[in-house]
């Protein structure tokens, strides 16, 4: 072990994004001033990249997949001629993913519609670039999420609920990080459809404003993080850990940049 033994757990905690802001700062300060720990930190990040590389996580052999599928089909078949359900079996059990608050809370009403129209217009006059259509989709997604009262499919401030919720619905695992302690509380998540693919939309709040963070895998051909303010809406994109992130909100650019930096600090590269 190359780092300081006393800092080992906290160093790992930092790498795993399991430290609160105060501890993270403390560990980062130590790493900055300690050659051994800084080396251990670099090693750990390299290892992480390697472990998440291609083919490290193996897939089930086809024969096993077929066996499992046959098993499920058999269970279904055996149930087909089953007797009428017993009262106990008929009880509808609460599904934990279904906890929802009043969605009307998020409807912004008529003002929102007008604002939305402005926003879409504003984006459509952005110089024609390869990302123009994408940005339009993103703002539309952000606006739509508030207009139709469909901000979130899973409403919870618990990142450990939001992340697994995405688990069964996407072919990738978006990082879900609560930033409540930094003034950006996690509200929930939903699926959205951007650029011809299903993406994760992770919803945060900043005061009364909503931030939609769209996430999908791939680094694309996008340049470095940049803000594109336009008529009340700010778009910010960056890539990290093999994922593309787009933050869309009507908060000011400074706040959105801060939001990005806070997330960056907790998402492994």
């Amino acid at each position: 072990m190359s780092g300081c033994p006393d800092w080992q757990e906290r160093l790992q905690g930092l790498i795993d994004g399991e430290l609160d802001a105060a501890h993270a700062v403390e560990v980062e300060a130590h790493v900055a001033g300690c050659a051994a720990c800084s080396e251990a930190y670099a090693d750990a990040l390299k290892l992480r990249t390697a472990l998440r590389g291609e083919d490290v996580r193996v897939v089930a052999p086809d024969i096993l997949t077929l066996r499992l599928e046959a098993m499920v089909r058999a269970a279904e078949a055996s149930a087909a001629p089953a007797a009428p359900v017993t009262p106990s079996a008929a009880v509808v059990r609460p599904f934990s993913g279904g906890r929802r608050r009043d969605r009307a809370l998020w409807g912004f009403g008529g003002a929102g519609v007008a604002l939305a129209a402005c926003a879409v217009l504003a984006v459509s006059v952005v110089p024609a670039m390869q990302t123009a259509q994408l940005e339009q989709d993103l703002v539309a997604g952000h606006v739509r999420s508030q207009l139709v009262g469909h901000l979130t499919d899973v409403v919870t401030s618990d990142q450990h609920v939001v992340k697994p919720w995405f688990g069964g619905k996407l072919d990738f695992s978006p990082p879900v990080i609560d930033l409540a302690d930094q003034g950006f509380p996690l509200v929930g998540g939903r699926l959205d459809y951007i650029g011809k693919r299903t993406v994760a939309a992770i919803v945060y709040r900043r005061g009364r404003h909503v931030i939609n963070l769209f996430v999908w895998p791939g680094s694309g051909e996008l340049g470095p993080a940049e803000a594109k303010p336009g008529d009340g809406y700010t778009l910010l994109h960056w890539t990290r850990g093999g994922m593309t992130f787009w933050a869309v909100s009507d908060v000011n650019e400074k706040d959105l940049q801060a939001f990005r930096q806070l997330l960056q600090a907790r998402i492994p590269a």
């Binding site: 750990a44 390299k46 390697a50």
Partner: peptide
């Protein structure tokens, strides 16, 4: 990871 990272 410490043990692994060194080996890696």
């Amino acid at each position: 990871p410490g043990a692994l990272a060194e080996a890696w």
